[in-house]
Design a protein around this nucleic acid. Structure first.
Lengths: 336, 336
DNA sequence: TTGTACGCGTTATCAG
DNA sequence: CTGATAACGCGTACAA
C-alpha cells in the first residue's frame, strides 16, 4: 500500500493525497473526505523513509541516554517522550553504553536519519566546542552544567548546580557536628564528570568550615547499590571514624546504607547518610534516606521546550539551572 | 555528502562505492582502499532513509517496552540492545504508555519504518491472533506466557511460568505457617494481566493447603513503591491479622515493607514479605527482601536469539519458559 | 572489475 | 482546486 494505490482507489492524483495527508495546499472538502476514508479503510501509513528522504529532514527527535538503567532517568525519559509526542514528533531513545562517546553516536544518527534535534541525558563534560558545532542541528544537554573550554553560547543546557548542591549536603552534615564525612561517587578524581563537580562542592564545604580534606574518605563507585555497598564496606574497614556518608546518587546511598546496617551499625544513630537525586526507592528505604533532590521531570520538560524553541529558529542558546532541594527524612542526625 | 560525492572524489563510479560499503560484489583491493580512505576522511555515513527506501526493508529492530521506568526492565533493555547491536542492527526503543495498545503502536512503526523485527517487553495478554498476524514481520513476546484464544504456533515468547512462580512463593509462606497472606498486584481481578496470572498461583497454593481464599486480602496496586506502600497501609488498617505479604513486584514489596516498618511492626518478626522480579534494590533493602527472581538478562538474550532465528527464516515459533527462583534473604519466617 | 541508468515512495513545483 | 513530474540518496541489473 503506497500513496499511488490510495490515489488510484480514491480516483484522484498522487499530489492530492499528499496534500490531504500533510494538510498542505488546498483541497476541496469532498475530495479530502473521500481520500481520508480510503486511507482509513486500507489502514494506510505513509512510509517515513521515503518522506524523510524527500524532505531531507525527518521530524524525529533523538534522546541519547547515558545509562538507561539509572533509576533517576526513568521518569525523565517518560516526560521527554510525553512532551515530544505532544508536539507531534516521534522520539528515538538511544542507550549509550558507559565509555561510548555520546557525541559521536549522535553524529552518526544525525547523518543516518536526518534528525530534527537531540537531547543528551547524562554523560560527561569533556567535548570540544568543535564537536558540538559539527552536530549541526539543535540539541540540549540535560543534567550537564558547564563544559570546560566551551563557549556557553554554543550549547543549551538544563541542570542543577552540582557544586552548590553537594556543598549544601556536606554543609548540612557538618552543621550537625560531623567531621569525618566520606564521599562516594563515580570518577570523583577524573575531571569533567558529575562526580568530580560534586566532589568540588564537598571540598568547598569542608574548607569553609576549616576541616581538612582527606582523600582516603573519598571512594570511587558506580551509580548502583552493589557498588555503593562495596565502597562503604571498604570505607568502614579503614576504621577512619566515619560518622557520615554523602553519596553522589541515591542508588549508591542505598548500597552504602545496607553496608552500614548489615555491619550492625545504625542509621542515623552511628552513621548519617545523605544521597543525591531524589528517587522513590530512597524515600521508601528504611530508614528513609535524606537526599539532595533534583526536579527531574521539570528538567526533562524544560529540555524539550528549549529544544523546540531552537528548532523553531530561536537562535539564542539557553542555560536553565534548577534549584536542588535538600530533603531531610531522618537519616542524618547530630553528633553527640 | 552523498554517495555521488564520494564516488567523484574517489574517482570511481557510484556502484563501486556502494559495493565497497556493503561488501557486495567484487572490488579490487586498491579501489576498495581508496574509497574507504575517502569515506573515512569525509566522515561519510550513508543515508539510512534512502537505503531503507530502496531496500524496502530496514534492518532496524524495535523494542516496545510497556513501562520503561520499571526497574526490572532496566537490565533487560540493556541486554537486548547489546545483543541486537552485536548482530549489526540498530535498535529503536519505544516506550509504550500504560493504556496504549502496543500492537497498534508497533503496527504503525512497522509500516512507517519497514522494521526488521519487534520485541515486546511487558504488556498485557489480550490481543487476538488476527492482530498478531497483521504485524507481518517476526516478533517475540518477552515476559508474556500464554495468550487467551491464540494459537501458540502464531507467536514466539520468552517468559517464566507466572502461575507456578506465584504458587511457589505462596506455598513457601504457607509452609512457614502463615494463613493470612495478602497479595498485592496490578489488576489482579482483570483477566489477561500478569497480576491475574500470579493471583491464580496464589489461589492455587491456598486451595491445596485448604486455606479459604479471601478477596479482602487482595489489593490492586501499581508496580511502584508508593502504591505498594498505600496498599499495604490499607490492608493493615483492615485488621485482618495479616502475617505475610506477597507482592507481585519488588517495587511493590519495598513500598509494602516500608508501610509495615513505619507502622512499628518488624520484618520478619511480625510480617513476612516476599516480592517478585529480583531487582537489585530489594536485595539492598534492610532487611533484604525475599523474592521470586526472574532471569531477566537471559530472557532478554534468548528473546533476541529467537527473533533473529525467525528473521533468518526459521519458521517455527518457539516458546521458552525460564525457571524462576525463590530467593530467601530473611524477610520471611516461621509463624510462632 | 567497473560505470550507467532506473526505481524505491514521497513531497514540491509547476502548469492546467 | 487538481494532476503530472522532477528530484531526494541509494542499491542493483545490465552493459561495457
Amino acid at each position: 500500500m503506497n500513496i499511488k494505490d490510495i490515489a488510484k482507489i480514491s480516483g484522484v492524483g498522487i499530489s492530492t493525497v499528499s496534500r490531504v495527508l500533510n494538510n498542505s495546499g488546498v483541497v476541496s472538502d469532498t475530495t479530502r473526505a473521500r481520500v481520508l476514508s480510503v486511507v482509513k479503510q486500507y489502514n494506510y501509513v505513509p512510509n517515513s523513509n521515503a518522506r524523510n528522504l524527500k524532505k531531507l529532514q525527518s521530524n524525529t527527535i533523538a534522546l541519547m541516554v547515558k545509562g538507561i538503567s539509572n533509576p533517576f532517568f526513568a521518569n525523565m525519559i517518560k516526560e521527554v517522550e510525553r512532551q515530544v509526542h505532544l508536539r507531534g514528533c516521534p522520539l528515538m531513545i538511544q542507550q549509550v553504553e558507559d565509555g561510548v562517546d555520546e557525541i559521536a553516536a549522535a553524529m552518526q544518527l544525525i547523518k543516518e536519519k536526518n534528525l530534527y534535534g537531540v537531547i543528551f541525558m547524562g554523560g560527561t563534560y569533556d567535548h570540544s566546542e568543535e564537536e558540538f558545532r559539527q552536530l549541526g542541528i539543535p540539541f540540549v544537554l540535560t543534567t550537564i552544567t558547564t563544559l570546560k573550554d566551551v563557549d556557553p553560547s554554543a550549547f543549551s543546557s538544563v541542570s542543577i548546580d552540582d557544586v552548590q548542591s553537594a556543598y549544601k549536603a556536606t554543609d548540612y552534615l557538618i552543621s550537625l557536628g560531623h567531621r569525618n564525612i566520606c564521599f562516594l561517587a563515580r570518577f570523583p578524581f577524573k575531571e569533567n564528570t558529575i562526580g568530580s563537580r560534586r566532589l568540588l562542592g564537598y571540598k568547598k564545604a569542608l574548607e569553609e568550615h576549616g576541616i581538612e580534606y582527606d582523600p582516603a574518605l573519598v571512594e570511587d563507585c558506580e551509580y548502583a547499590p552493589s557498588f555503593g555497598f562495596a565502597a562503604a564496606k571498604r570505607l568502614l574497614n579503614k576504621n577512619l571514624g566515619v560518622t557520615a556518608m554523602f553519596a553522589a546518587s541515591d542508588a549508591i546511598a542505598i548500597g552504602a546504607a545496607k553496608a552500614v546496617l548489615s555491619s550492625g551499625l545504625s542509621i542515623p544513630g552511628d552513621v548519617s547518610i545523605v544521597g543525591f537525586d531524589g528517587i522513590e526507592m530512597a524515600e521508601y528505604y528504611h530508614p528513609s534516606l535524606d537526599t539532595v533532590s533534583q526536579p527531574g521531570v521539570e528538567m526533562a520538560h524544560v529540555s524539550v521546550e528549549i529544544l523546540f524553541d531552537l528548532i523553531a529558529g530561536d537562535t539564542a542558546n539557553r542555560h536553565v539551572v534548577f534549584e536542588s532541594m535538600l530533603v531531610k527524612r531522618g537519616s542524618s542526625r547530630k553528633v553527640t
